[in-house]
């Protein structure tokens, strides 16, 4: 068996499909592309494709990840070409790398995500509000669960917030804890900062996913940052 890590983007109209829809859409594209998928054992064998982290409806993701288990080795360029030929518009594979079978499941490793909100309407100065959030001890937030409402303190899930000007327009960056053991959603931060929500036209993008190892932030694709400041510095270099 071979394992590959696929970095892909989900954007355009496809940002409106749910995580489950995305999984189904990818699997069907892989089958059309005749990729030799490995299947799990048992009564109802499932193809072994593991997505890194679900992305909310309406948010685009430009560096999303999934791990692919194949029954045989394939040349990565060919793999990428064949998959891309079958993906619907809005989904595209950006690159593929080989990964050791020994590595833990990608979904279990994801610990943080960097989001960007484009601030279309001038919200006035955010410095004060951002500072307040970051210096708060607790940020209780009510969440709707299946079994009713629940209070959650989301302060521990906010790693950093900062503003950047890109091409003359303002952007809010949110580095948030995410993953299997809890996290904050970018919409919750927008709400706390009294910024317009998605449906009011705010464009939200998940720029990157990270594994967290102590202070370090590592992208599933292999880039490593020693701390949050290095992530910010990387961002600034992009400008």
């Amino acid at each position: 068996m071979e394992r590959f890590r696929v970095c892909f983007a989900k954007s355009g109209m496809l940002k409106y499909i749910s995580h489950l829809d995305l999984q189904r859409t990818f699997l069907r594209a892989l089958r059309r592309a005749k990729i030799p998928l490995a299947y799990s054992q048992g009564f109802s064998p499932q193809p072994r494709v593991v997505f890194a982290a679900p992305l909310g409806i309406g948010i685009e993701g430009i560096n999303e990840y999934l791990d692919l288990f194949l029954t045989r080795q394939m040349q990565m360029e060919l793999l990428e070409k064949r998959i891309n030929k079958q993906l619907p518009m809005g989904l595209i594979v950006k690159n593929i790398c080989s990964i050791s079978l020994e590595e833990p499941a990608i979904s279990a490793l994801i610990g943080a995500a960097l989001y960007r909100a484009r601030l279309e309407m001038d919200p006035g100065s955010l410095q004060q509000n951002i500072g307040n959030l970051l210096s708060a001890e607790q940020l209780p937030k009510e969440r709707q669960h299946k079994k009713g409402k629940k209070q959650v303190d989301i302060r521990p899930f906010i790693l950093d917030l900062w503003e950047e000007e890109i091409g003359g327009s303002r952007n809010l960056f949110m580095l948030l804890v995410t993953g299997s053991s809890g996290g904050a959603r970018p919409e919750e931060i927008l709400e706390l900062l009294q910024l317009p929500e998605l449906r009011k036209g705010t464009i939200l993008t998940r720029e990157s996913l990270f594994f967290r190892v102590g202070e370090k932030l590592l992208t599933p694709g292999g880039a490593a940052y020693n701390n949050i400041n290095e992530v910010k510095a990387w961002r600034e270099k992009l400008l």
Partner: peptide, 19 residues
């Protein structure tokens, strides 16, 4: 338009760009 799609529960019903 996004204004329509984000205000409904299952926007995937209305995309029209399926394979």
């Amino acid at each position: 338009s996004p204004q329509l799609l984000l205000r409904v529960n299952k926007p995937a019903r209305y995309l029209g760009i399926e394979i």
